[in-house]
Simulated assay, not measured.
Amino acid sequence: MIFERDLKGAQTRLAELLDGARRAVAFTGAGISTECGIPDFRSPGGLWTQNKPIPYDVFVAHKAARNEAWRRRFAMEEAFGDAKPGRGHRALARLLGEGRLAGVITQNIDGLHQASGIPDDRLVELHGNGTYAICLECGRRYELSWVRTRFEASGGIAPDCEACDGPVKSATISFGQAMPEKEMARAEALTRAADLFIVIGSSLVVYPAAGFPLRAKRAGARLAILNREPTDFDDIADMVTRSEIGDVLAPFVDEA
Protein backbone atom coordinates (compact mmCIF):
# COMPACT_ATOMS: atom_id res chain seq x y z
CA MET A 1 0.00 0.00 0.00
CA ILE A 2 1.13 3.54 -0.83
CA PHE A 3 -0.46 5.91 1.67
CA GLU A 4 -0.46 9.49 0.42
CA ARG A 5 -0.67 11.73 3.50
CA ASP A 6 -0.49 15.10 1.77
CA LEU A 7 -2.83 16.48 -0.86
CA LYS A 8 -0.21 17.19 -3.52
CA GLY A 9 1.17 13.68 -3.24
CA ALA A 10 -2.31 12.21 -3.63
CA GLN A 11 -3.03 14.34 -6.68
CA THR A 12 0.29 13.42 -8.29
CA ARG A 13 -0.06 9.70 -7.60
CA LEU A 14 -3.61 9.57 -8.93
CA ALA A 15 -2.56 11.41 -12.08
CA GLU A 16 0.26 8.90 -12.60
CA LEU A 17 -2.12 5.97 -12.20
CA LEU A 18 -4.58 7.49 -14.67
CA ASP A 19 -1.82 8.25 -17.17
CA GLY A 20 -0.78 4.60 -17.05
CA ALA A 21 -4.29 3.19 -17.42
CA ARG A 22 -6.17 2.32 -20.59
CA ARG A 23 -9.46 1.28 -18.97
CA ALA A 24 -9.95 3.02 -15.64
CA VAL A 25 -13.20 2.57 -13.71
CA ALA A 26 -14.49 4.72 -10.85
CA PHE A 27 -16.52 3.25 -7.99
CA THR A 28 -18.32 5.88 -5.94
CA GLY A 29 -20.08 5.97 -2.60
CA ALA A 30 -21.79 8.55 -0.40
CA GLY A 31 -18.51 10.35 0.36
CA ILE A 32 -18.37 11.91 -3.09
CA SER A 33 -21.65 13.74 -2.40
CA THR A 34 -20.97 15.11 1.09
CA GLU A 35 -19.33 18.16 -0.50
CA CYS A 36 -22.72 18.80 -2.14
CA GLY A 37 -24.50 18.98 1.22
CA ILE A 38 -25.79 15.39 1.23
CA PRO A 39 -24.70 13.58 4.42
CA ASP A 40 -23.39 10.04 4.25
CA PHE A 41 -25.05 7.12 5.99
CA ARG A 42 -22.90 5.92 8.87
CA SER A 43 -20.91 8.81 10.32
CA PRO A 44 -22.31 10.94 13.19
CA GLY A 45 -25.29 12.84 11.84
CA GLY A 46 -25.51 10.47 8.87
CA LEU A 47 -28.83 9.42 7.41
CA TRP A 48 -28.90 6.01 9.11
CA THR A 49 -28.15 7.49 12.54
CA GLN A 50 -31.27 9.64 12.19
CA ASN A 51 -33.65 7.04 10.72
CA LYS A 52 -33.36 3.29 10.85
CA PRO A 53 -33.70 1.91 7.30
CA ILE A 54 -37.06 0.35 6.43
CA PRO A 55 -36.52 -3.19 5.07
CA TYR A 56 -38.05 -4.10 1.74
CA ASP A 57 -40.39 -6.75 3.09
CA VAL A 58 -41.74 -4.35 5.71
CA PHE A 59 -42.31 -1.68 3.04
CA VAL A 60 -44.27 -4.14 0.89
CA ALA A 61 -46.31 -5.62 3.72
CA HIS A 62 -47.34 -2.53 5.66
CA LYS A 63 -49.06 0.63 4.45
CA ALA A 64 -47.76 2.49 7.52
CA ALA A 65 -44.19 1.68 6.50
CA ARG A 66 -44.84 3.02 2.99
CA ASN A 67 -46.31 6.18 4.48
CA GLU A 68 -43.22 6.66 6.64
CA ALA A 69 -40.83 5.91 3.77
CA TRP A 70 -42.38 8.62 1.62
CA ARG A 71 -42.51 11.07 4.54
CA ARG A 72 -38.76 10.61 4.96
CA ARG A 73 -38.13 10.92 1.24
CA PHE A 74 -39.88 14.25 0.96
CA ALA A 75 -38.27 15.52 4.16
CA MET A 76 -34.90 14.72 2.59
CA GLU A 77 -35.92 16.50 -0.59
CA GLU A 78 -36.59 19.67 1.41
CA ALA A 79 -33.07 19.51 2.84
CA PHE A 80 -31.07 18.19 -0.13
CA GLY A 81 -33.27 18.61 -3.19
CA ASP A 82 -31.24 21.53 -4.50
CA ALA A 83 -27.90 19.70 -4.33
CA LYS A 84 -25.67 20.16 -7.38
CA PRO A 85 -22.76 18.00 -8.59
CA GLY A 86 -19.54 18.64 -6.69
CA ARG A 87 -15.96 18.68 -7.83
CA GLY A 88 -15.74 14.91 -7.64
CA HIS A 89 -18.74 14.38 -9.91
CA ARG A 90 -17.52 16.99 -12.39
CA ALA A 91 -14.00 15.54 -12.44
CA LEU A 92 -15.31 12.08 -13.31
CA ALA A 93 -17.54 13.52 -16.04
CA ARG A 94 -14.54 15.26 -17.56
CA LEU A 95 -12.32 12.16 -17.35
CA LEU A 96 -15.08 10.13 -18.99
CA GLY A 97 -15.51 12.71 -21.73
CA GLU A 98 -11.77 12.68 -22.42
CA GLY A 99 -11.74 8.89 -22.73
CA ARG A 100 -9.61 8.47 -19.61
CA LEU A 101 -12.38 6.67 -17.76
CA ALA A 102 -14.31 3.68 -19.10
CA GLY A 103 -17.27 4.00 -16.78
CA VAL A 104 -18.60 4.77 -13.32
CA ILE A 105 -20.12 2.28 -10.89
CA THR A 106 -21.99 3.96 -8.06
CA GLN A 107 -23.68 3.00 -4.82
CA ASN A 108 -25.35 6.41 -4.74
CA ILE A 109 -29.01 7.13 -5.45
CA ASP A 110 -28.88 10.94 -5.65
CA GLY A 111 -28.68 11.35 -9.44
CA LEU A 112 -25.71 13.72 -9.23
CA HIS A 113 -23.58 11.70 -11.64
CA GLN A 114 -26.22 12.15 -14.34
CA ALA A 115 -26.52 15.82 -13.45
CA SER A 116 -22.77 16.21 -13.96
CA GLY A 117 -23.11 14.98 -17.53
CA ILE A 118 -22.36 11.26 -17.28
CA PRO A 119 -24.68 9.39 -19.69
CA ASP A 120 -26.73 6.44 -18.49
CA ASP A 121 -24.89 3.99 -20.72
CA ARG A 122 -21.62 4.76 -18.93
CA LEU A 123 -23.08 4.70 -15.42
CA VAL A 124 -24.03 1.68 -13.32
CA GLU A 125 -26.37 2.41 -10.41
CA LEU A 126 -26.08 -0.59 -8.11
CA HIS A 127 -28.55 0.70 -5.54
CA GLY A 128 -31.02 2.30 -7.89
CA ASN A 129 -32.07 5.92 -8.22
CA GLY A 130 -34.03 8.03 -5.77
CA THR A 131 -35.08 10.73 -8.22
CA TYR A 132 -38.13 8.83 -9.48
CA ALA A 133 -40.46 6.00 -8.40
CA ILE A 134 -41.75 2.71 -9.78
CA CYS A 135 -44.64 0.38 -9.12
CA LEU A 136 -43.33 -2.82 -7.56
CA GLU A 137 -46.01 -4.88 -9.28
CA CYS A 138 -46.11 -3.70 -12.91
CA GLY A 139 -42.96 -1.59 -13.13
CA ARG A 140 -44.72 1.60 -14.19
CA ARG A 141 -42.59 4.71 -13.66
CA TYR A 142 -43.81 7.71 -11.69
CA GLU A 143 -42.16 11.08 -11.21
CA LEU A 144 -41.69 12.22 -7.62
CA SER A 145 -43.94 15.21 -8.25
CA TRP A 146 -46.83 12.80 -8.98
CA VAL A 147 -46.19 10.89 -5.75
CA ARG A 148 -45.81 14.04 -3.66
CA THR A 149 -48.98 15.67 -4.92
CA ARG A 150 -51.05 12.64 -3.95
CA PHE A 151 -49.14 12.03 -0.72
CA GLU A 152 -49.76 15.56 0.53
CA ALA A 153 -53.34 15.75 -0.74
CA SER A 154 -54.21 12.60 1.23
CA GLY A 155 -52.62 13.82 4.44
CA GLY A 156 -49.57 11.58 4.26
CA ILE A 157 -50.91 8.39 2.67
CA ALA A 158 -48.62 6.70 0.16
CA PRO A 159 -50.31 6.44 -3.26
CA ASP A 160 -50.72 3.14 -5.05
CA CYS A 161 -50.21 2.50 -8.75
CA GLU A 162 -52.94 3.88 -11.01
CA ALA A 163 -52.59 0.92 -13.36
CA CYS A 164 -52.59 -2.06 -10.99
CA ASP A 165 -52.93 -0.76 -7.41
CA GLY A 166 -49.48 -2.07 -6.57
CA PRO A 167 -47.21 -0.32 -4.05
CA VAL A 168 -45.22 2.60 -5.44
CA LYS A 169 -41.64 2.91 -4.19
CA SER A 170 -38.68 5.11 -4.97
CA ALA A 171 -36.54 3.35 -7.57
CA THR A 172 -33.91 2.42 -5.02
CA ILE A 173 -32.71 -0.88 -3.60
CA SER A 174 -33.76 -1.33 0.02
CA PHE A 175 -32.37 -3.74 2.60
CA GLY A 176 -33.62 -7.21 1.78
CA GLN A 177 -34.47 -6.33 -1.83
CA ALA A 178 -32.81 -8.26 -4.64
CA MET A 179 -29.97 -6.49 -6.40
CA PRO A 180 -30.70 -5.50 -10.01
CA GLU A 181 -29.36 -8.32 -12.19
CA LYS A 182 -28.67 -6.19 -15.27
CA GLU A 183 -26.73 -3.58 -13.31
CA MET A 184 -24.75 -6.19 -11.42
CA ALA A 185 -23.77 -7.82 -14.72
CA ARG A 186 -22.70 -4.47 -16.17
CA ALA A 187 -20.64 -3.71 -13.07
CA GLU A 188 -19.02 -7.13 -13.25
CA ALA A 189 -18.02 -6.62 -16.87
CA LEU A 190 -16.54 -3.18 -16.19
CA THR A 191 -14.69 -4.47 -13.15
CA ARG A 192 -13.09 -7.44 -14.87
CA ALA A 193 -11.97 -5.32 -17.83
CA ALA A 194 -10.50 -2.54 -15.67
CA ASP A 195 -6.78 -1.95 -15.36
CA LEU A 196 -7.32 0.79 -12.75
CA PHE A 197 -10.15 0.74 -10.21
CA ILE A 198 -10.67 3.99 -8.25
CA VAL A 199 -12.78 3.81 -5.11
CA ILE A 200 -14.14 7.26 -4.20
CA GLY A 201 -16.01 7.93 -0.99
CA SER A 202 -17.08 4.39 -0.09
CA SER A 203 -16.53 2.63 3.21
CA LEU A 204 -16.67 -0.69 1.32
CA VAL A 205 -18.80 -2.46 3.90
CA VAL A 206 -22.10 -2.89 2.01
CA TYR A 207 -22.10 -6.14 0.04
CA PRO A 208 -22.35 -7.35 -2.63
CA ALA A 209 -21.32 -3.95 -4.06
CA ALA A 210 -18.21 -3.75 -1.88
CA GLY A 211 -16.82 -6.89 -3.48
CA PHE A 212 -16.06 -5.21 -6.81
CA PRO A 213 -12.75 -3.56 -5.77
CA LEU A 214 -11.41 -6.92 -4.62
CA ARG A 215 -12.46 -8.59 -7.86
CA ALA A 216 -10.78 -5.83 -9.86
CA LYS A 217 -7.54 -6.25 -7.91
CA ARG A 218 -7.58 -10.03 -8.31
CA ALA A 219 -8.13 -9.56 -12.06
CA GLY A 220 -4.93 -7.52 -12.27
CA ALA A 221 -6.13 -3.94 -11.91
CA ARG A 222 -4.38 -1.34 -9.81
CA LEU A 223 -6.50 -0.12 -6.92
CA ALA A 224 -6.76 3.45 -5.64
CA ILE A 225 -8.89 4.34 -2.59
CA LEU A 226 -9.97 7.91 -1.83
CA ASN A 227 -11.95 7.81 1.40
CA ARG A 228 -12.08 9.77 4.62
CA GLU A 229 -11.96 6.65 6.82
CA PRO A 230 -9.94 3.42 6.55
CA THR A 231 -11.43 0.53 4.58
CA ASP A 232 -10.88 -3.22 4.71
CA PHE A 233 -9.08 -3.07 1.35
CA ASP A 234 -6.48 -0.41 2.16
CA ASP A 235 -3.73 -3.00 2.62
CA ILE A 236 -4.04 -4.29 -0.95
CA ALA A 237 -4.42 -0.86 -2.59
CA ASP A 238 -1.77 0.75 -4.78
CA MET A 239 -2.78 4.16 -3.42
CA VAL A 240 -4.74 5.30 -0.38
CA THR A 241 -5.52 8.87 0.67
CA ARG A 242 -7.68 10.40 3.40
CA SER A 243 -7.60 13.87 1.81
CA GLU A 244 -10.90 15.47 0.87
CA ILE A 245 -12.26 13.97 -2.36
CA GLY A 246 -13.05 17.30 -4.00
CA ASP A 247 -9.54 18.53 -3.26
CA VAL A 248 -7.88 15.41 -4.68
CA LEU A 249 -9.95 15.49 -7.85
CA ALA A 250 -9.86 19.29 -8.30
CA PRO A 251 -7.08 19.17 -10.96
CA PHE A 252 -9.39 17.09 -13.17
CA VAL A 253 -12.42 19.39 -12.92
CA ASP A 254 -13.47 21.22 -16.07
CA GLU A 255 -14.15 24.76 -14.89
CA ALA A 256 -15.13 26.05 -18.33
Rank of each mutant, 00 (worst) to 15 (best):
K52M: 09
S43T: 15
G117V: 13
A65S: 03
V104C: 04
P180F: 15
P230A: 06
K169I: 07
D120A: 07
G45I: 14
R71S: 12
D19Y: 00
G45L: 13
P44N: 06
D195F: 00
M76V: 09
T106R: 09
E181F: 15
A21P: 06
G155M: 06
R71E: 09
G46I: 10
N51H: 15
A91E: 01
E35G: 14
R228T: 04
I109M: 11
L18F: 09
R242C: 06
R141Y: 05
D6N: 09
F74S: 01
L136K: 12
L249N: 11
E255D: 14
A193D: 14
K52A: 14
T231I: 11
E181H: 11
R222P: 02
D121R: 12
I134W: 08
A219C: 02
Q114R: 15
V205L: 13
A30D: 12
G9S: 13
A163D: 14
D235F: 10
W70M: 07
D234Y: 08
G201K: 07
T241L: 01
S154F: 07
D234P: 10
V206Q: 09
A64L: 05
F59S: 11
M184G: 05
D232L: 10
M239D: 12
R5S: 12
E152S: 02
N129F: 10
T49N: 08
A69G: 09
M179Q: 13
I118A: 03
P167Q: 02
A10M: 03
L7R: 01
D195K: 00
A224H: 05
Y207T: 03
G117L: 15
R228A: 03
G117I: 15
A79K: 15
T131G: 10
C161S: 06
A187Y: 04
G220Q: 04
P230F: 12
E98L: 15
T241Y: 02
A178G: 12
K52R: 15
E16A: 08
N129M: 11
V25M: 01
R13A: 14
Q114C: 06
W146G: 12
A61Q: 11
L249Q: 06
S33Y: 10
L14D: 02
V240M: 01
I245C: 14
A133R: 05
R23E: 03
R23G: 02
R73P: 07
A21E: 05
R186A: 13
D160R: 13
G130V: 05
V25P: 01
W146K: 10
R218K: 14
R100N: 01
G46S: 11
L101A: 01
M179L: 15
W146P: 11
R148H: 14
I32H: 05
D254C: 08
W70Y: 10
D165A: 12
I118V: 15
N51R: 14
G128R: 00
A102M: 03
S202A: 14
F74Q: 09
F175L: 12
D19W: 00
R242K: 10
E244P: 02
R42P: 00
V25K: 00
F212D: 00
G117D: 14
A26C: 02
V58Q: 12
L96N: 01
E98R: 07
S170Y: 00
C138P: 08
L123S: 04
G130I: 03
A83I: 09
I245D: 07
E68W: 04
G128H: 08
A102T: 03
D120Y: 07
C161L: 06
G156Y: 10
L226V: 09
G166W: 07
P53M: 11
A26D: 01
W146A: 15
G220M: 03
G166S: 08
R71F: 08
G246Y: 00
